[in-house]
């Protein structure tokens, strides 16, 4: 294997730096997207949990009122 001239190698190494920088940028962006997805996930979970809680409490209220109104038999 013949060694290519020094300049070519240096150019290649420089190209390698540039390529790797590009990869880092992409990786960094993916990382950012991941972070975003994670915090989006947390935020959604928290909001859904609140919503769930409200629905549950409404359901229980309906159960109670139904029991109050029907005296035994269910409305459904």
């Amino acid at each position: 294997m013949s060694t290519p001239p020094r300049e070519t190698i240096q150019k290649q190494i420089q190209q390698d730096w540039a390529n790797r920088e590009y990869i880092e940028v992409i990786t960094g962006s993916i990382k950012k997207i991941t972070d975003f997805l994670n915090s989006f996930d947390m935020s959604c979970r928290s909001r859904l949990a609140t919503l769930n809680e409200k629905l549950t409490s409404l359901e229980r209220k309906i159960d109670y009122l139904e029991a109050c109104v029907t005296k035994g038999e269910t409305l459904t």
């Binding site: 950012k32 997207i33 975003f36 989006f40 947390m42 935020s43 928290s46």
Partner: peptide, 9 residues
């Protein structure tokens, strides 16, 4: 994406 506010209380 950074600018979206994602509140988590």
């Amino acid at each position: 994406l950074d600018e979206l506010t994602l509140p988590d209380e």
